[in-house]
């Protein structure tokens, strides 16, 4: 079995199995816990539903915190959107998704994909640089660094595979797929799960505060 066969066969397969099982395990293991009952009377009878607005409104910091969070907000947005575009816009990725789900859509020209991939990588570097230079603000732990490495790795290896840098293409492609597999495996057990938690966490706080008539 070649490295590529291992990568796009058992490696990515088991990674997906762990990703799916682990994510659902963690989600249900939390969401099926008891619900705290707040028995106090809400400020408005149906006002609590306004709390769900927080899920969307928190997508951008309020003007109060604009200046303080500007760097991080902009760079993080660049990173998240660039990564998302790369993940769903590159031909090879669409082919993989299609082989998994049957869904397909037009791809971006490779040059555009590479440019956006570089944006994603550079913004990720900008974020880690800030984290490293402001230790008192970020209180980073091992998980933060592992997560960063496992997110940066697919970007770096993907760009290298495309540019035919480093080892031969099929080896680089295999390394790229393996790095993604590692990220998939890490996902359910790490802060990467924030990509799902943010909905619940924002809603939870939105509801708590809306109960008291406060829009956060």
């Amino acid at each position: 079995m070649t490295l590529l066969e291992f990568a796009r066969g058992p490696a990515i397969h088991w990674a997906l199995i762990i990703l799916v099982a682990g994510t659902i395990w963690r989600l249900l293991g939390v969401l099926a816990l008891t619900r705290g009952g707040d028995l106090s009377r809400p400020r408005d009878a149906f006002g609590n539903y306004k709390g769900y607005r927080t899920v969307f409104s928190r997508a951008w910091p309020s003007s109060e915190f604009n200046v303080a969070t500007r760097y991080q907000t902009i760079v993080a947005y660049l990173f998240h959107f660039a990564t998302l575009i790369v993940v769903v816009g590159i031909t090879a990725h669409i082919e993989f998704i299609q082989s998994l789900t049957g869904a397909s859509w037009p791809a971006l020209p490779n040059a555009v994909g590479v440019a956006i991939g570089i944006v994603a990588l550079v913004s990720l570097l900008a974020l880690i640089l800030r984290r490293l230079t402001n230790p008192s603000i970020y209180c980073s732990n091992l998980g933060d660094y592992i997560t960063w490495i496992l997110v940066a790795a697919p970007l770096i290896t993907g760009l290298m595979a495309f540019a035919h840098l480093g080892p031969r293409y099929e080896t680089m492609l295999a390394i790229h797929i393996l790095s993604v597999a590692l990220m998939f495996i890490w996902f359910p057990f790490s802060k990467l799960m924030h990509s799902i938690w943010f909905v619940f966490s924002r809603a939870q706080s939105g509801l708590t505060y809306a109960h008291k008539g406060v829009q956060i």
Partner: peptide, 9 residues
């Protein structure tokens, strides 16, 4: 294609 995962899904 090369990018396809090679496993039963």
């Amino acid at each position: 294609s090369i990018a396809d995962g090679q496993f039963g899904t």
